[in-house]
Design a protein around this nucleic acid. Sequence first.
DNA 1: AAGGCGGGGGT
DNA 2: ACCCCAGCCTT
Length: 387
Amino acid sequence: MPTGKTSNRSSKKSSRASTKADTVRDPAHDARLVRDLCRWFEVSARDLPWRKTGNAGKRDPYRSLVSEFMLQQTQVSRVLEKFGPFIERFPTLSALASADEDDVLAMWSGLGYYRRARSLHHCAQEASTRFGELPVSVDDLVSLKGIGRYTAGAIASIVHNEPAPIVDGNVERVLLRIEGQPFRAGEPDTRDWCWDRAEELVKQAAKSRAKSVSPAAFNEALMELGALVCTPRSPSCLTCPLRTDCRACQTGQQHEIPAPKARQARKPLYMACAIVENKKSQLLISQRPKGGLWGGLWEVPGLESDSPVPIEALAARLGVATKDLIRHNEFVFETTHRSVKVEVYRATRAGSVTGGRWVTRNELETLALGSLQSRVIASLTARKESL
DNA sequence: AAGGCGGGGGT
DNA sequence: ACCCCAGCCTT
């Protein structure tokens, strides 16, 4: 199985200059590729809320920032649900910078990878302090928390039309298929190869004087193609604007490229928690430590472990007796990395936890909750209604 | 270089 | 079931 290291053409910088003569790529070919793709994008681009342009047809940098953070490892359809409400709540960079972190997290509820929300908040503050606004250059952007090579390149190119390359999962798949490279997805050598290729192409786009071609259009077109046409499972090669340039399509290998990533098994996690209600119908909640799983989010109090949690331990944490806990519900919650077995109890007496807080059901709606906790809370309602 | 980090939709 | 997704940060 090729790792990407051995091929002449694929090995990086050192050899590329010296192999220019025997590469199949040539500037004219690349120019046509870039033009075909940009023309396709001009008529096929989805109308997404963060693509709304203001004066001079330019994107709002702040909206792009928010959308790029939300889109990290997250599909457009999921982001569409959260983007509008988030922008409405925090309309500008300075509004976000001066917001409470808890409120930012709350607006992120259900979107996952919650560190992104805290990074975005921090990023807004730092950008305001150091630059007064969101910076333009890749180097300045990448110095901000939560902005890596991809996000910096996306903002610089899509908003400011800088000839900066970008490589995400879509771009990687498209480029590997076009070149017929059977590399394994997501590996460092594969990424390096793609970044080099993306840079060549975006520079080609910058040279073009064709109307629809620009670094901004090219980068976004590449991702759009990956999302709409050159999809992971069943690519629509018959209607692809690049089908005559695509080696994978020509050799019928689009289903084998890229080779699937090696994945590791989900780790089990055991969680026991309790719904504790006081006489005022308030629920006891506590906040998870920042940094780890569901960092900074709220939850009904509980314990978690690599092995099943004894009910005695849960009772001790809540300061109640074991007999005060009644089994209420259980379910398995799957994430990409974890399989969480959740046991939900109800406490017949009001316990307490350090740092705990009593909230009404209405207040709870405004707090940051992960999907697992939403399900825990929902099981309370569902059960009550069925009685 | 590897592991941690969510959640939902497509196949 | 297993795949993937407009990745980034820490160790």
